[in-house]
Amino acid sequence: MTRPLLGISACNRPFGEETAQVVIDRYMEAAMRHADAAALLIPARPDLMRASEAAARIDGLLLTGSPSNVDPARYGDADGNGPFDPARDEMSLALIDAMIALGKPVFGICRGFQEINVAFGGTLDRGLGDPARALPHHAAEGVPLDAMFAHRHDVRLTPGGVLARAFGRDGLTVNSVHFQGVERLGEGLSVEAAAPDGVIEAVSASPGGAPVLAVQWHPEWQSDRDAASTGFFGILGRVLRGDAIAAAPAKKGV
Rank of each mutant, 00 (worst) to 15 (best):
T2D: 15
L5I: 10
L6D: 07
G7S: 07
C11D: 14
P14Q: 07
P14D: 10
P14I: 06
F15A: 15
F15K: 13
A20P: 01
A20W: 03
Q21L: 11
I24H: 15
I24D: 14
D25E: 15
Y27L: 12
M28S: 15
A30M: 08
A31H: 13
M32A: 14
A39P: 04
I42L: 14
P43H: 05
R45H: 14
R45F: 10
D47N: 10
M49Q: 14
S52P: 00
S52E: 15
E53P: 06
A54F: 12
A56Y: 05
I58K: 04
G60L: 04
G60E: 03
L62Q: 13
S68V: 04
N69D: 06
N69P: 00
N69A: 11
V70Q: 03
P72Y: 04
A73Q: 13
G80A: 09
P83R: 05
P86R: 02
E90D: 11
E90F: 00
M91P: 01
M91A: 04
S92R: 02
L93A: 04
L95G: 01
L95S: 00
I96S: 01
D97C: 05
A98S: 09
M99C: 08
C110E: 08
C110S: 10
R111K: 13
F113L: 08
N117T: 06
V118P: 00
D125H: 02
D125A: 03
R126T: 09
G129V: 01
A132K: 11
R133L: 15
P136A: 06
P136F: 04
H138D: 13
E141L: 08
V143C: 05
P144D: 10
A147L: 14
M148T: 13
F149N: 07
F149I: 07
H151G: 07
H153M: 06
D154I: 05
V155T: 03
P159M: 10
L163Y: 01
A164Y: 02
A164D: 03
R165K: 13
G168E: 10
G168D: 11
R169C: 13
D170P: 00
D170I: 01
L172H: 05
V177K: 02
Q180G: 07
G181P: 01
R184N: 07
R184Y: 04
G186C: 06
G186V: 03
L189Y: 03
S190T: 00
E192K: 04
A193H: 04
A193V: 06
D197Q: 11
V199K: 00
V199A: 14
V199Y: 02
I200F: 00
E201T: 02
E201I: 02
A202W: 00
S206G: 11
P207G: 04
P207D: 12
V212I: 15
L213G: 08
Q222W: 04
Q222V: 10
Q222N: 14
D224W: 10
D224H: 09
R225G: 07
A227R: 08
S229A: 15
G231C: 07
G231L: 02
L236F: 08
L236G: 08
R238C: 11
V239P: 07
L240D: 11
R241G: 09
G242V: 11
D243S: 13
D243K: 09
A244M: 09
A246S: 14
K251N: 00
K252R: 14
K252M: 12
V254S: 14
